[in-house]
């Protein structure tokens, strides 16, 4: 299993993502700079949290047009797996790899706390380590996590099982309490909460660990 973490200027969860992945994979994970124009063959590309390009224009807007994104799109089109967390989710929406957009939180506040999430389905490489309907705790830390899509898109993603996680107690105004979505094939996942921040008892919990463990188990097979 080979994975990489993409690094943009002002990414700040890139090392956390690398550490979480390496703990599950057991071998080193590459860091790939956003200006690179070649992407080696990876099973998983992870886009980390942070404030890429200082959130200029719109969160994730600049990063979504970085040179490396053309390669990530090709990787996704080949059926390669992509995980985007927090700013990574915003980047994937801006790049058109996931439907919808993340807007300013409804109450305008930056939210930094643990939240409870409902796992919608357990038949993807990302969530096979959980049970459908199970509640897990992940931390959130964002100012722009308010998920929005037009009525038609929302109906489509709800109908086709593209909702990955829902907030038990909606902290940011997201439509349908949506905290994370899949692409149509279930191979690209974006979510606002941070599974990589709860993968070790020393960090206060391990609810995020099954996501990484199951990804590795599935993609290494």
């Amino acid at each position: 299993m080979k994975a990489c973490v993409i690094v943009f200027p002002a990414s700040n969860c890139d090392r956390d993502m690398k550490v979480a992945l390496e703990a599950s994979i057991g071998s080193p994970v590459d860091m790939v700079w956003h200006r690179d124009t070649q992407l080696a063959k990876y099973d998983l590309v992870a886009i980390p949290g942070g404030f890429s390009y200082g959130d200029y224009l719109r969160c994730g807007a600049m990063a979504a047009r970085s040179p490396i994104m053309a390669e990530i799109k090709k990787h996704a089109e080949r059926g390669g797996h992509v995980l985007g967390v927090c700013n990574g989710f915003q980047v994937l929406c801006e790049a058109g790899l996931l439907p919808g957009v993340l807007m300013r939180n409804a109450h305008l506040k930056f939210i930094c706390k643990d939240v409870q999430l409902k796992v919608e389905r357990a038949d993807t490489a990302f969530t096979g380590g959980y049970k459908a309907g199970q509640t897990v705790t992940y931390p959130v830390a964002h100012h722009d996590g308010n998920y929005f899509a037009d009525a038609e898109t929302l109906k489509r993603i709800e109908g086709e099982g593209q909702v990955a996680f829902r907030y038990v107690d909606n902290p940011n105004g997201s439509l349908g309490d949506i905290a994370g979505v899949y692409n149509a094939g279930g191979t690209v996942l974006g979510l606002m909460p941070h599974p990589e921040r709860l993968v070790d008892p020393l960090l206060g919990g391990i609810d995020g660990k099954p996501l990484f463990d199951h990804l590795v188990k599935t993609l290494a097979a």
Binding site: R65, E94, G100, V101, M103, F148, D150, T153
Partner: peptide, 9 residues
């Protein structure tokens, strides 16, 4: 279309 606006919203 490509950058300045996000036409979803």
């Amino acid at each position: 279309k490509k950058l300045l606006a996000n036409t979803v919203i």
